[in-house]
Design a protein around this nucleic acid. Structure first.
Lengths: 164, 164
DNA sequence: TCGAATTCCGACCGAATCTGTCGGGATTAC
DNA sequence: GTAATCCCGACAGATTCGGTCGGAATTCGA
């Protein structure tokens, strides 16, 4: 039961972009160096983030990636869905694409158990919906000598249309 | 982000044992047939459950497995930990064995991100701690009359009807 | 116009994990 | 003794993980 490094690296990438938000595009090489991650691998990950509309890319010299909107407006559930796919602790409990998943639930204890996976899925989803990228980006204004982690303004109601 | 079939099959196995609780040991062959699962594979899974003290085994003819205690007394978090290992959405956020896991958190955004995994882990853990095997076992009232049913006291059965 | 920087994209690849299978040994009821 | 059953280690095909590689396309600045 775990996320892959795809999720971890991707989130770290997003945090770096959050710190640079408003400074124009940042190159992957720069971020790869900062986070000590393989740049070619980040290239793959950032594709998913771009396709999900979370980052926008600028090609050519002095190009790079930047957040498509402010960190406060990016719920972490959108980030992890882009990186890891739908939140589904088990095939029968996906939060997306409810297409033709009935025939897999025919046996006795199977549907009973499904209740468990749905509860887990909802727990994860709710947690992720309540967090935005801003909750993970260190204060850009305050000095680095402040408290470790501060939950800044929480996005209320998470009115994200592009949530899918 | 998902559990493996190990988790699914193991939980289904436990539900079957829950339905049979009080009837003495049940053979794996019987359960494998009921759930339509490969018996040799279940053999592997049940080892973990036995080692975790959740089921007890009886060897020899007419042997089998049975719950070590009533379904009400078996929290689902114990079941999934036995089957899938510690609840850890990321290496840095395991709920067990906090041994020497500091050196992995040295870089800038890494520890910041760790906050996210801990939140997810806690959400899963809390959910699982609030559920017992009894919540997944269908009512045993309509059991076949041939079975010598032993009505055991059902503990307040974790009043948690609402939710979801 | 040229070249450097950068994204874009598909192909490839070794290692690990997943999802089992197989064969036999140990133990017990009858 | 025999049948049923658990116990346990080894093996193995398929898939996923965690990248690497090479080059094409695009853009900026000189």
């Amino acid at each position: 039961m775990s996320f892959s490094t795809k999720g971890e690296y991707g989130v770290r990438l997003m945090v770096q972009l959050g710190r640079r938000y408003g400074s124009g595009p940042s190159s992957l090489a720069e971020i790869a160096t900062d986070e000590d991650l393989p740049r070619p691998y980040l290239e793959q990950l950032v594709m998913s983030l771009r396709d999900a509309g979370l980052v926008i890319s600028t090609r050519g010299s002095h190009g790079g990636y930047e957040l498509s909107r402010s960190p406060e407006e990016i719920p972490m559930i959108a980030v992890l869905r882009a990186l890891e796919g739908p939140i589904a602790p088990m095939i029968c409990a996906s939060d997306e694409s409810e297409l033709a998943h009935e025939p897999t639930c025919d046996r006795t204890a199977r549907c009973t158990v499904n209740f468990l996976w749905i509860r887990i899925r909802d727990a994860i989803s709710t947690t992720l919906e309540g967090m935005s990228l801003a909750d993970l980006v260190p204060e850009r204004l305050a000095a680095p000598a402040s408290e470790p982690i501060i939950i800044k303004r929480r996005v209320e109601a998470v009115p994200d249309p592009a949530l899918v």
